[in-house]
Design a binder for these strands. Structure first.
Lengths: 346, 346
DNA sequence: TTGTAAGCGTTATCAG
DNA sequence: CTGATAACGCTTACAA
C-alpha cells in the first residue's frame, strides 16, 4: 500500500557513479563540485523525485531549520476560540518565517502546561516564539530558566529593561495615551477604562499608564472608580460595562483595553438604551478585522501585526545565529472611526 | 554561549547502570522493563531534563508524529491577509491535532508553487492536510499524483465521488439551497447570486447548484443574468454588486458565495443609497466572526469549522495508520440575523 | 574536485 | 526482562 521506495542519496550516488557525499554536496549546490557532476546529480535527483530526509539531516547537523510558535492562553477560553488579534499575528509570523526559509511548528498551550515543553530540548525547533497574554509573574520565571539554559527564543509582550530574553511588543503605553488623549480632545473628562486591574498583565497595565499620562497632560484627575476589571473576551467587556453602568459612577466615554472588550461593552450599552457614540464614546485596542465593520465602526489603537511578525521571526533567527538580538518596541497608532464620535463632533 | 550539554540516552544508561536500549524502552513505558528499572531510569531522565531527540527517533522509526497543514491561496491575495474562514479552520485543526498528539507544521503556499512541496517526501510529516480554495482542474492533477505515490493526505473541499484521495468538506449545495430557500420564503423572486462563474471552483459551483434547486422547488425560473462573477474578497464583492446594480437587472435580494463578498456587496449597496435589508436582502456564506457584528448583522450559512478540523485530522491520521478512510460531508446551517430582513417581515 | 570514514541519538532485531 | 549490535540517511573532517 505504501508503495513508496523513497530514494536515498546512496541510490543517486550509484546511478551517477560518484560517492555519496558528492551527491550531498551537489544537491546543496556546493561550488566544490564540478558543474558537470552537479548537474548530472541534480538531474537524477529530480527524475527520482528525491528529497533529502530532514530527520537525517537534522540529526547530523544538529539544526532543524524550524521555528516553534507557542500560543498560550491563560484563562479557560472557550475551546477552539482564538483571540482574533493572535490569529492575525499567527498569519504574519507564518509568512515571515516562510520568507526566511524556516518551517513553522505551531502549538497551543495552556499557561499551566509545561511550557517550553520540549521544542528546543527535543531538537524539534531551533528557536521558539512565545505568543499570548499571560500572567507576567508566572511566565517570567519560566523565561528566566529558558534563558539560563541558553535557549533561543523571543516573547511577544512587554518590552521592559533588564528582563531575561528577547522581547518584541507594541508600545502599549503610547496606545493607551493616544486613546485617552483622543477622547479628552473630544472634550470628554470622565473616561472609563475597561481592562485588567491586577497589574499582572503588563500590556494592560501599560495601556492604563498611558491613559493616566494623557489625563495628566491635560490636567485631569484620574478617578480610580472609572477603572473596571475586564479581561480579554467580549463576555468580560460586556460584564464590565454592565457593572460600570449600574455603579452610578458618571462617565461619558470608555477606553477599552481590547477590541473584544469594546464589542462586549457596546452590547451592554445598547441593552441599557445608550447609543454609541451619541451617549457614550468608545475606543478599542488592537484593530482586529471586525473593528472596521462594527456598528458603529470602532475607533481603536492599531497594533502593527505585520511588522510584529517580521520582528519576532528576525529576532529568533538572529538569536539562533548567535547574533546579539535586541528587544524591539513597535509603535501603535490611533485609527479614528465612528465609535468615538470624532467625525461627528469635528 | 550555548551552554547546553544535552544529555543523551547513553548518559542515562551509564547513570542507571543499564544498557542504552533499556533506557529507551523504559522511557516509552514499555512493560518489558521491570518496574524498578523503569522508575529509576525515568527519575534520572527527569533530573537531567532529558528529552528524546526527535530527529534521531524519527530517522530510526521513519515516523514523525507530525502533520503538515498546507494553506494555499490561488489569487494574489493581499500579503499577510488570510481569509478569516481559513483562520478559523486553522485554529480548529491546530487544536484537533494537538489533541491527537501530533505536532503541526504549517505552511502557506501559492497554488502555483510546487505544492506537496516536500513535506511527506522529506519525512517532515506523516501526513498532509490541504486547505484552500483552488482551481479544481489544477489541483486534481497534483492530487492524483500524490495519491499514486501513496502519500497520506486529506483535502478540504468538494466531496465528489470517484476522485482520488480523501476529502472533507461542507455541504455547499445544501448551504446554497438554504440561503436561496430562505430568501424565497421571504417572498423574494429576483435573487442575485454573487460568486465565481467559471465552475472551476466546486465549492462555489455547488452553492450555485443549491441556489438553483431552491428556485426549482418553488417553481421559480433562474435568471442567468442574476449570476455575477465574484471571487473571495470583499473587493470582489464590492465590484460585483456595483456591476449588478448598474446593469439595470432587477433584483430584490442577494445570495453571496462568501461573507467577504457580502461585506463588499453591502458596502456597494450603501454607496448607491440602498439600505439592507429594507431595499435589498442579503445572505452570506461561512459565518466568519465578523458576520454577527456587521451592521446589519449578517444572515449567513454556517460552516462548522470545529467539526471540520476534527474530521480533517482524524482522516489523515487514519490514513497514516493504514485504515481506509472515507470522505466526509459536513452539514451546513442557516443562521438568521438581520440582513435578510427575516426578523422584520415575520 | 572527489572519496573515505566516522558519527549524529535513537529504535529494531535478535539472542540470551 | 535485558543486552549487544546494527541500522536509519545524512553531513563533517580529513585525506587523496
Amino acid at each position: 500500500m505504501k508503495g513508496k521506495n523513497k530514494p536515498t542519496s546512496v541510490d543517486i550516488a550509484h546511478l551517477a557513479g560518484v560517492s555519496q557525499p558528492t551527491v550531498s554536496r551537489a544537491l546543496r549546490n556546493s561550488p566544490l563540485v564540478s558543474l558537470a557532476t552537479r548537474q548530472r546529480v541534480q538531474q537524477i535527483a529530480r527524475d527520482l523525485n528525491y528529497k533529502v530526509d530532514v530527520n537525517a539531516r537534522n540529526l547530523r547537523s544538529q539544526r532543524t531549520n524550524t521555528l516553534a510558535l507557542l500560543l498560550f492562553e491563560d484563562s479557560g477560553e472557550r475551546e477552539a476560540f482564538i483571540n482574533p488579534f493572535f490569529l492575525s499575528m499567527l498569519g504574519s509570523i507564518t509568512r515571515a518565517s516562510a520568507q526566511q526559509g524556516y518551517d513553522l511548528l505551531i502549538s497551543f498551550q495552556q499557561l499551566s502546561d509545561d511550557w517550553n515543553a520540549e521544542y528546543e530540548d527535543a531538537n524539534k525547533a531551533d528557536g521558539i516564539i512565545f505568543l499570548g497574554y499571560g500572567d507576567y509573574t508566572s511566565y517570567i520565571k519560566r523565561i528566566s530558566k529558558l534563558d539560563h539554559e541558553g535557549a533561543h527564543f523571543v516573547t511577544w509582550g512587554p518590552v521592559i529593561e533588564d528582563q531575561p530574553g528577547l522581547f518584541v511588543g507594541s508600545d502599549n503605553e503610547l496606545g493607551g495615551f493616544l486613546a485617552a488623549d483622543h477622547l479628552i480632545r473630544l472634550e470628554h473628562t470622565r473616561i472609563a477604562f475597561l481592562g485588567d486591574e491586577s497589574n499582572d498583565y503588563p500590556e494592560f497595565r501599560d495601556r492604563y499608564a498611558g491613559y493616566c499620562r494623557a489625563h495628566a497632560k491635560h490636567g485631569l484627575e484620574v478617578d480610580p472608580r472609572l477603572r473596571v476589571n475586564a479581561f480579554f473576551s467580549e463576555e468580560c467587556g460586556y460584564r464590565a460595562a454592565h457593572t460600570l453602568i449600574t455603579s452610578g459612577v458618571e462617565f461619558s466615554a470608555i477606553a477599552c483595553a481590547s477590541d473584544l472588550i469594546a464589542i462586549g461593552a457596546i452590547k451592554a450599552l445598547r441593552e441599557h438604551g445608550l447609543k454609541v457614540p451619541r451617549d457614550k464614546a468608545i475606543v478599542g485596542f488592537d484593530d482586529i478585522p471586525t473593528a472596521e465593520h462594527l456598528a458603529p465602526s470602532l475607533t481603536t489603537i492599531q497594533q502593527d501585526t505585520f511588522a510584529a511578525g517580521q520582528a519576532l521571526v528576525d529576532s529568533v533567527i538572529r538569536s539562533i545565529n548567535g547574533e546579539t538580538g535586541e528587544s524591539k518596541l513597535l509603535p501603535t497608532r490611533l485609527i479614528i472611526r465612528d465609535s468615538s464620535g470624532a467625525k461627528i463632533s469635528l
